[in-house]
């Protein structure tokens, strides 16, 4: 038995309807087994949320250990009225708009192609998934040379086909282009594997029946594969939106949010205000605004999938 069939993890666990037995036969043992996890969960998962919430009402300095003065909602009004904050929110959103379509559609296409090939599956798996396990810093080091002006691999490749190369790292548009290409290359494999697993669940007979009825490969794709994959597509879409909204590594390492902070994402804004100018309370307020946005998005999605699960 494979893990795929025995372990429907959290992505699918939402529809897990196993009744929970609450009769307290083993109450003491149960809490003992849960204790180490609960302590760490309270300290390091709930803890930061509460600390952030408290600090956001004070003018705490990041370098000092005391809270500072209580300023009520001042940090929040400052953050919400700050143009740089909204710019960084927009940059994270723009990054999401740029990367999500590619990272939802291209892996689907590749997975469907791969499902039609019976041999050498391992080769595609390695080629597509290997970049995903590699640290962001290694990826950025390699791509910084690929994007290098004049001598870089990309510039040369574009030269070869006669296209003008943008300034990959020095102009805002070029920077977004290079970030999109790097990110698609880097994280493509994760979604590819999710789709591949879902495709394996579709029984072979479905296609055979369709082929006998005279459906072309294109029709099969449109009227069998994609509809049956709809839950997976929506899962991938949601995970990708959340992952893209949390972008930091690539933009920070490759561009430091540049040129001229024109690509700086929210996390770097929080980093800059909190750790460079030491405005801890202010950065905590920015953190809470961003945090609540992300939680609302995942909560809405969780409720929506639950409802759909109940309807079905």
């Amino acid at each position: 038995m494979t893990t795929t069939t025995t372990a429907p993890g959290p992505g699918i666990a939402k529809v897990d309807t196993t009744p929970i037995d609450n009769s307290g036969r083993d109450t003491k043992a149960g809490w003992l087994f849960s204790a180490p996890f609960l302590v760490l969960y309270a300290l390091f998962l709930i803890g930061p949320v509460l600390v952030g919430l408290v600090i956001s009402f004070f003018n705490t300095a990041t370098v000092k250990n005391d809270l500072g003065e209580f300023v009520a909602l001042e940090n929040y009004t400052d953050v919400l009225g700050n143009l740089d904050f909204w710019k960084s929110m927009w940059h994270s959103t723009l990054f999401t708009i740029l990367t999500v379509p590619f990272l939802v559609v291209l892996p689907l296409l590749a997975a469907i192609f791969a499902s039609r090939i019976s041999r050498n599956q391992w080769f595609y798996r390695i080629a597509f998934f290997a970049p995903y396990v590699v640290p962001s810093a290694s990826v950025c080091l390699i791509f910084s040379f690929i994007y290098a002006p004049e001598s870089g691999l990309f510039v040369k490749a574009l030269d070869l086909v006669g296209l003008p190369a943008p300034d990959f790292l020095g102009s805002t548009n070029g920077a977004w282009l290079s970030l999109t290409i790097l990110t698609v290359w880097w994280t493509f494999g994760f979604n590819f594997v999710l789709y591949t697993a879902a495709l394996q669940e579709i029984p072979e007979e479905t296609y055979e029946a369709a082929a006998i009825d005279g459906a072309s490969p294109w029709q099969q794709m449109r009227s069998i594969t994609v509809p049956l994959l709809r839950p997976t597509i929506s899962l991938v879409l949601m995970l990708q939106i959340l992952a893209s909204l949390k972008v930091f590594d690539q933009i920070f390492i490759l561009l430091q949010g540049g040129p001229n902070l024109s690509t700086r994402p929210v996390i770097q804004y929080i980093y800059d205000t909190g750790f460079t100018t030491y405005r801890g309370g202010y950065a905590a307020a920015a953190t809470m605004v961003y945090f609540v946005t992300l939680v609302i998005i995942s909560a809405v999605w969780m409720l929506a999938t639950r409802r759909r699960g109940a309807d079905a």
Partner: peptide
């Protein structure tokens, strides 16, 4: 599952 830890580095650091 819904808590985005990456967003919480600042309060985490203070803690």
């Amino acid at each position: 599952l819904m808590v985005p830890m990456e967003a919480l580095v600042l309060p985490q650091f203070m803690e």
